Amino acid sequence: MSDHARIKGHTVTRTVHVEASRASVWEALSDPEVMVKWFGDVVRFTALEPGATGSIEWDDYGSFPIEITEVVPGDSFGFRWSGIPAEKLDEYSTHVRFSLADAGTGTDVTVIESGFETLPGGTLYRRDRLEQNREGWDVELDELVTLLEG
């Protein structure tokens, strides 16, 4: 089993190992039709390219706008997203970056979520958001592993 997500400074980091090809992992991270099987209930992008916008929705939590910042197929995928349900990205957004690396017969997936230090609302709010998202990445990346390892 993989380590839990960690908070270091104002970032949340977690690496999980998946016994699956980089191509399969990439598809799960970047194709909305596969993303919904582990991350969100509805995922929409206008395109898979930097600057494209969209949203990730959870039935129980609402819709979170995103803007794609980085697309390197098979290697890395980044986006800004709102930390709270919203119509558009604002000062409450943070940055998420997934990177992939070959590891034995499978793939290591690392997520780094950053930008919490610039959130409005002061230290307590930022700490709460860090902790909520740390727990979130534990749940979501475990679901990714389960999906890809069947």
Results as ranks from 00 to 15, higher is better:
5 A>L: 11
7 I>Y: 01
9 G>A: 06
11 T>W: 00
13 T>V: 15
15 T>C: 04
15 T>M: 08
16 V>H: 06
16 V>S: 04
16 V>L: 05
17 H>Q: 14
19 E>H: 07
22 R>T: 12
24 S>H: 07
24 S>A: 15
27 E>K: 13
31 D>W: 08
33 E>Y: 00
34 V>N: 00
36 V>A: 01
36 V>T: 11
40 G>S: 10
41 D>K: 12
41 D>N: 11
42 V>I: 05
43 V>H: 12
46 T>E: 13
46 T>N: 05
50 P>Q: 02
52 A>C: 12
54 G>C: 12
55 S>W: 01
57 E>A: 15
59 D>F: 09
60 D>C: 00
60 D>S: 10
63 S>E: 14
64 F>P: 14
65 P>L: 10
72 V>P: 01
76 S>I: 05
78 G>K: 01
78 G>F: 01
79 F>P: 05
81 W>M: 13
85 P>D: 01
86 A>I: 04
92 Y>K: 05
92 Y>A: 13
93 S>N: 06
94 T>M: 13
95 H>R: 15
98 F>L: 12
100 L>E: 06
101 A>G: 10
103 A>T: 05
104 G>L: 10
104 G>R: 03
106 G>I: 09
107 T>A: 06
109 V>F: 08
109 V>T: 06
114 S>L: 11
120 P>G: 02
121 G>W: 01
122 G>D: 09
123 T>K: 14
125 Y>R: 07
125 Y>D: 09
126 R>G: 13
127 R>K: 15
127 R>E: 15
133 N>H: 11
134 R>C: 13
135 E>G: 01
136 G>Q: 09
137 W>I: 09
138 D>V: 08
148 L>G: 12
150 G>S: 14
